[in-house]
Simulated assay, not measured.
Amino acid sequence: MPIPVIDFSKLDGPGRPEAMAQIATGCEEWGFFQLVNHGIPVELLERVKKVSSECYKLEREESFFKSSTPVKLLKELVDKKSGDKLENIDWEDVFLLSDDNEWPPNTIAFKETMTEYRTELKKLAEKLMEAMDENLGIPKGYIKKAFNGGEGEKAFFGTKVSHYPPCPHPEMVSGLRAHTDAGGIILLFQDDEVGGLEILKGGEWIDVQPLPNSIVINTGDQIEVLSNGRYKSVWHRVQALPNGTRRSIASFYNPSYNATIGPATQLIEKENKDINQFGYPKFVFGDYMSIYTEQKFLPKEPRFHAVRFV
């Protein structure tokens, strides 16, 4: 059962109604879909692959296998021969790119390439959010304005660069444990060849098939709240694998920490604006993140209720 694949270029031509309907289906029924013909040049994507792989090889791989916590804990567990599985750790090398962080310094053209990529990806995210606005029947720019906490450019746009190296005992550890994403729109540039990403649909885990130069989209918890439950954030995970190093570059268009998030007023009854019958609250995103940090791998509904705006 492959996840939906949407030709995003149709949004600007006669195929727009079809593309809009596909985006609606992807958001409402899946929470995950892939965009092709999304406007980001293939040449740029090839450079992103190159510098990301070079950065991992040059600056990350040796220390991961020599001194990282996952490698150390897995070795200890194997030596015990208990048959247990590591429950609270991921087989993942990861670092975050944001405007405030120090970026890897030793990989040629890494910063220039990833800065250009992030600029293009942010524009794609904002175009996609406008399509979501239209499909939800809320004013154009509503999601972006909500994430910015009003006017201006205060939303957070971060990029998580991950690699999942070959694991000698993949049955004993997760690549990344099952979770939903805390934020808004997630745009993933995943490996062309090495799989492992799965989503939970209908009680079954299904693969997110690698598709060259596509961008995988998923909706986070804040979109679920803002859409009043019409769009759902979806449980997903990454399996550790015995062969191949999986590259995963996930970018997050998230609300400002000071932004107040709640169901869009157009999507709830006038007499019930603060909380609908399901229980989606209004809250400050920073408060939500404080809880999410502690409960990322636990059910999301208690998080929603724990941050009810008073």
Rank of each mutant, 00 (worst) to 15 (best):
G183K: 00
L267I: 09
S227W: 02
V238I: 10
F283T: 10
E269A: 15
S251W: 07
I185E: 02
T180C: 13
G202W: 04
D191V: 03
N213H: 14
I206V: 13
T260Q: 10
T265P: 09
G196M: 01
R246Q: 06
Q266N: 12
A240P: 03
V216G: 02
Q239T: 08
G203I: 10
T293S: 14
N272Q: 15
G229T: 01
I185L: 15
D287A: 11
R237Q: 12
A250M: 05
L200F: 10
V194E: 05
L197W: 04
T245H: 07
I223H: 00
A259G: 08
Q239K: 15
N228C: 14
Q209A: 12
S290Q: 14
S214L: 03
R246V: 00
K232G: 00
S251P: 05
N258G: 09
G286N: 09
K201W: 06
E198T: 06
W205N: 09
L187C: 08
E193K: 11
Y231C: 00
F189N: 02
V284P: 08
T293L: 14
I223W: 01
S214D: 04
L200I: 08
E294P: 07
K270V: 15
G262P: 06
Y280P: 15
E294Q: 15
S256T: 03
D221N: 11
F285W: 09
K232R: 11
R247Y: 12
H179N: 07
F252Q: 03
P263F: 12
Y231Q: 01
A182Q: 05
S290D: 14
L211K: 08
D181A: 00
D274V: 14
Q295F: 12
K201V: 08
E204K: 13
I217N: 00
T293A: 15
G184F: 00
G184V: 01
I261S: 10
R230L: 11
P281S: 14
L211A: 04
K282S: 14
F285N: 08
L187W: 02
N218Q: 03
L267A: 10
I275M: 15
K232N: 04
F278V: 13
Q295T: 15
I206R: 04
Y288Q: 09
Y231G: 01
S290W: 00
E271I: 14
V234D: 00
I275K: 13
I268V: 15
L197D: 02
K282Y: 07
R177Y: 00
T245Y: 07
H236R: 05
S248Y: 04
I249N: 04
G262F: 06
P255I: 00
